[in-house]
């Protein structure tokens, strides 16, 4: 099929970006969205032009590297998929597709569709861990965890850190991301001893990084490729208010 692509081009963080238009022919419905961009890049390279830069790695939806705004949706219009798993069969021949980087102040553009998400790492560094030194752990089965709680912790723990929640939010809030990690540890007995310090440190860092506040719109949940639930944010608030 044939596509008309409108893609954000920006040389680096210091320069101003702009949309550019590309016509791309020969797109197969079997391609993933990133493979479609690979084919465009091959064409651009052969024409002596600068290819479009975008982050990507595992290409099976688990590493969280890829992510772009496609026709107004983070990771595109199909729920529950990362950009790398988004198939071109969801698009029509002759369709116009608008592709932008994540738009959020704490995620500055590095080049084209690549943004700097190190603010996420900084939040995790502030407190997203359980302080156990290698060698200090007790026998694994000495910690009993109710299966239901353990499964819930897993459902929160599957966040891939892609940033779609921030990109989807009109306030550029990182509450879904932060609450997923807080919830995972809050639900497990191993996480309780440091629960108060953790939630305080992570919230302070989140604010410091310039993420907006949560106004419970729920766009993050709707757009999360891993379907992380909004109830995590409720748990985060509860953890936070009981931490003082």
């Amino acid at each position: 099929m044939k596509l008309r692509l409108k893609i954000w081009r920006q040389k680096n963080a210091k320069t101003k970006g702009a949309f550019a238009f590309y016509d791309l022919d020969g797109v197969s419905p079997d391609m993933s969205f990133l493979e479609m961009l690979d084919s465009l890049n091959k064409k651009l390279i052969e024409e002596g032009k600068d290819p479009i830069a975008f982050d990507h790695d595992c290409r099976e939806g688990i590493c969280g590297s890829c992510g772009m705004f496609i026709n107004g949706y983070p990771h595109g219009p199909v729920p529950g998929l990362t950009t790398c798993l988004l198939s071109m069969r969801y698009f029509k021949d002759g369709e116009k597709i608008v592709i932008e980087p994540w738009r959020a102040k704490p995620f500055p553009v590095i080049k084209d569709l690549i943004v700097d998400r190190s603010a996420f790492d900084k939040i995790q560094i502030a407190g997203g861990f359980i302080s156990v030194t290698a060698g200090a752990a007790s026998e694994a089965n000495s910690i009993l965890v109710r299966k239901k709680k353990s499964d819930e912790a897993f459902d929160s723990a599957i966040c891939i850190g892609c940033g779609a929640c921030v990109a989807a939010c009109k306030n550029a809030s990182a509450m879904l991301f932060v609450s997923a990690k807080i919830s995972q540890f809050a639900l497990l007995p191993q996480g309780r001893p440091e629960a108060k310090e953790r939630v305080r440190a992570m919230i302070v860092e989140m604010d410091k990084q310039g993420f907006g506040t949560c106004s419970n719109t729920g766009a993050c949940e709707a757009q999360c490729p891993k379907k992380i639930k909004l109830t995590n944010i409720a748990r985060l608030n509860r953890e936070y208010y009981s931490a003082f």
Binding site: G135, S138, E139, A140, I143, L144, V145, S150, L188, G191
Partner: peptide, 20 residues
């Protein structure tokens, strides 16, 4: 020891109903 350590770090391994 690896399993003990990961469990202590909060890795949510699958569990039985009794919590093990």
């Amino acid at each position: 020891q690896v399993i003990d350590h990961y469990t202590a770090l909060g890795v949510p391994f699958a569990r039985e109903y009794g919590g093990t």
